[in-house]
Amino acid sequence: MKKSDFYFDLPERLIAQHPLAQRDASRLLVLDRADGSVSHRQFRDLMEYVQPDDCMVFNNSRVIPARLMGHAVGHTTPIEVLLLTDKGDGLWECLTRPGKKTRAGVDLTFGDGLLTATVESVQPDGNRLIRFHYDGVFLEILDRLGVMPLPPYIKERLDDPERYQTVYARTPGSAAAPTAGLHFTPALLDALAQKGVRLAFVTLHVGLGTFRPVKEEELADHVMHAEYYSMDEQTAQCINETRAAGGKIWAVGTTASRTLETIADERGHVRAQSGWTDIFIYPGYRFKVVDHLLTNFHLPESTLMMLISAFASREMVMEAYRQAIAAEYRFFSFGDAMLLY
């Protein structure tokens, strides 16, 4: 299967530049995988599809203010550093711009020296391994110096950074939001719980590797960047008990899906664990634990398009996208939602 199989033409006007005033006021396109039919609903109508004793799994990772502006020691040229992956002990994998100013051995400074760093190496893909030096708590320093790293297709300023966080975000570490969850409100979560839906949480720290363009034409040649995930015993028990009782597992977002499919064995059984995943899901993959998938609308030729095309079929997904464009759904991070049922 080829990358070009997942191309579609998207009018720029359909790329949502800002969130709606109400999180759950977005539209919901429902794709029935049994027959390929498409329904046009509102996100609040999700309540009609989820059943008591189903388990809905959310990614509770929180986006950190991962974009830093600084300069090399002894120079004034601005250097942008985007934190991607925490390697431990102050070492981060980063994107830098301009790259020629961040060769191995270069010392960097941010915020008048409140935070300093050293570029330790340049990776084969161009990313930098940078070790940061600081006194105090790193995340607190980031809160003072860093900026929320919005995707490049969002051109407008975000007045409230919390709108790029889910209401249940708890564990800091992502460079991008798990955007399918942005539609949920505390009231909607309460309504789900009151209906008898079991709510469970995993953590997958979203790196930019998930969203990077696929360069290889043959999908089998594409390599995903690894991302950190974690599932606790409470969530594992919820999933296993739900499946044993005949309930359905709902994944809120592609990141939750990738986490669940990484952890599940061939029988769909999960256990508490943490680690790193570079799972790449594309058509031909057999899902082991996810029954229903709630997601946003994705970029052409992206790994996320390939994942949802594995969950339904490429033909069903491309037709649903054709209808979404014709009906002028809002696309990408602040856009509308899609339920693959």
Rank of each mutant, 00 (worst) to 15 (best):
I239T: 00
C238V: 15
D190E: 15
H183D: 06
Y229C: 02
A256T: 02
K215P: 06
R258G: 00
G246D: 12
K248V: 03
T259Q: 02
A175Q: 11
E227S: 01
A176I: 14
M224A: 07
V223T: 15
Q194D: 15
L208S: 01
F184D: 10
E218Q: 13
T203V: 09
L192W: 10
A180P: 03
S257A: 15
F211M: 00
V206L: 09
K248T: 00
A244N: 14
L188H: 04
T262M: 07
L219G: 09
L199N: 00
E216F: 01
A236W: 10
G196E: 03
H205N: 02
D190K: 15
S174W: 07
A245M: 10
L204N: 05
A177G: 12
P186C: 13
T262L: 06
V214N: 00
H225S: 10
G173C: 11
R212H: 06
W250I: 03
K248I: 04
T259N: 09
L189T: 11
R198K: 15
H222E: 09
E218V: 13
A175G: 11
T203C: 05
S230P: 00
L219Q: 04
A177K: 11
E227L: 02
A256P: 07
T242S: 08
D221I: 01
L219K: 06
A256C: 02
I249H: 02
G246F: 14
Q237N: 12
Q194R: 15
A251R: 02
D232L: 14
L204T: 03
N240A: 13
Y229E: 05
V206M: 07
G196C: 09
P213D: 04
L219R: 08
T179L: 10
N240D: 12
T255M: 02
T185N: 08
A264S: 14
N240W: 14
E227A: 08
A176H: 13
A264P: 10
T254L: 05
A245E: 13
A193K: 13
T242E: 05
G207D: 04
T179F: 10
H225Y: 09
G196R: 04
G207Q: 01
E241K: 05
T255R: 01
A251V: 05
K215C: 04
P213G: 08
H222F: 12
P178T: 09
A193L: 01
E261D: 00
E261K: 06
T259H: 00
E217Y: 12
R198F: 05
C238R: 13
A175R: 11
T210F: 07
P186W: 11
R212K: 03
E233P: 04
A180F: 05
T203E: 05
G209K: 07
G247N: 14
A187W: 01
L188N: 02
L192T: 08
T185D: 07
T259L: 09
A245C: 12
G209Q: 10
A226R: 12
F201S: 07
T262R: 05
L189A: 10
L188A: 03
G181M: 11
T259P: 03
L260C: 11
W250Q: 05
G173Y: 10
H225V: 01
H225I: 03
G196Y: 07
G196Q: 08
C238N: 14
Y229N: 05
L192F: 12
L199C: 08
W250P: 02
R258D: 06
I249N: 08
D221R: 03
V197N: 04
